[in-house]
């Protein structure tokens, strides 16, 4: 499918189609790899303007790889990432290169998981936040300083003047993550990939950072792809949730619908694992067997086959089920639903 084939009425800000990332295993300079890790395998989703999508799954399921492909830190093995942008028109992010890619970097930014590692310890906060402006050549020094000061105020690092020339090690984890958010927002992106931005923070300051991200999303009209393993966080941050398992999307729908009526056995197990803060509520525990494996050259069957309580011969003999609409936009990839 190419850009023309999509109707002009498509309002999605980001549309991902048949996205794949396969990492070679073994192999070297002169040897071809014998096998591949199917980190992301045929993933499709869309994010509407002003809405956020939560990408939920266990660690190692390919959610971070998906995010990195959207930010073009990884080149996709195959597939398309369409960005529908007001100023620049519709482009396939998977194909842009060179200066064009640099221009599109302005529209897509990323917030990383570890606030202790994502800021260069040898550069000041000002240097870090101003970096996107500097490399993109936007504004002169004075304008840049004003923008940085304004943004630092907005992310709650007030007074901006005292924070601007500090080093990361002089800041707390929450403050550092605020700096990372400021860095992502400084060039007014349309879309931000947030890779578990609160998972490394103390529980007590998580909610503050999440609130801040919501406020800023409204203010700057930004959409997030919010990657997390925590359903509660995804529920707070996102209008839609997609559940990922071993490189495949297994279920995707609106947040409340997903939490209230999970259809895929994996999603059901995930939700049943979230404790309910009420001792009187009885809930059926859904157990799944084993642990997550690495998708190295997976066999042609449902990826969840080995661990699924409902699996039968149909799941074993057929390829991984496609993601289908089971009514009301509730997309599920399972033969048993």
């Amino acid at each position: 499918m190419n850009a023309e084939a999509i109707t002009m009425t498509d309002t999605a800000l980001v549309r991902v189609e048949a996205l794949k990332k396969h990492f070679p295993v073994g192999g070297g300079l002169f040897r071809r790899a014998k096998s591949h890790i199917y980190a992301v395998d045929d993933v499709n989703f869309a994010i509407q303007k002003g809405k956020s999508l939560g990408l939920v799954g266990e660690s190692g399921c390919g959610k971070t790889t998906t995010g990195k492909m959207l930010a073009r830190l990884h080149d996709p093995t195959d597939g398309h990432i369409f960005l529908n942008d007001m100023e620049l028109g519709k482009v396939d992010l998977a194909e842009v290169k060179g200066t064009q890619l640099k221009t599109f970097r302005r529209r897509v930014q990323m917030i990383f998981q570890d606030p202790y590692e994502s800021l260069n310890p040898r550069r000041t906060i000002f240097d870090t936040v101003v970096e996107p402006l500097a490399v993109q050549g936007i504004g002169d020094l004075i304008e840049r300083e004003e923008r940085v000061a304004n943004l630092l105020d907005l992310v709650g690092l007030t007074p901006a003047d005292t924070f601007m020339f500090r080093f990361p090690h002089e800041l707390s984890g929450g403050q550092r993550q605020r700096v990372a958010i400021a860095r992502a927002l400084i060039i007014n992106p349309a879309f931000i990939v947030a890779d578990e931005p609160t998972s490394m923070l103390d529980v007590s300051i998580r909610i503050g950072v999440m609130q801040l991200m919501q406020e800023l999303a409204d203010r700057f009209a930004v959409s997030y792809l919010y990657i997390t393993h925590d359903l509660a966080v995804a529920r707070y941050m996102c209008q839609d949730i997609a559940v990922m398992y071993l490189g495949k999307l297994v279920e995707m729908t609106e947040t409340e619908e997903l939490l209230a009526h999970p259809l895929h056995p994996y999603t059901q197990a995930l939700i049943s694992a979230v404790p309910i803060p009420d001792p009187r509520v009885q809930r059926e525990a859904i157990d799944i067997k084993g642990g997550i494996a690495q998708p190295i050259d997976p066999p042609a069957r449902c990826r969840f086959y080995d661990r699924c309580p409902r699996a039968d011969n149909q799941c074993r003999d057929n390829d991984h089920p496609p993601l289908e609409d089971k009514g009301g936009g509730h997309m599920v990839a399972c033969y048993k639903v």
Partner: peptide, 11 residues
């Protein structure tokens, strides 16, 4: 380190 990725995302 992620700050290298961040610099790359910045262009």
């Amino acid at each position: 380190k992620p700050f290298i990725s961040a610099a790359r995302v910045a262009g």
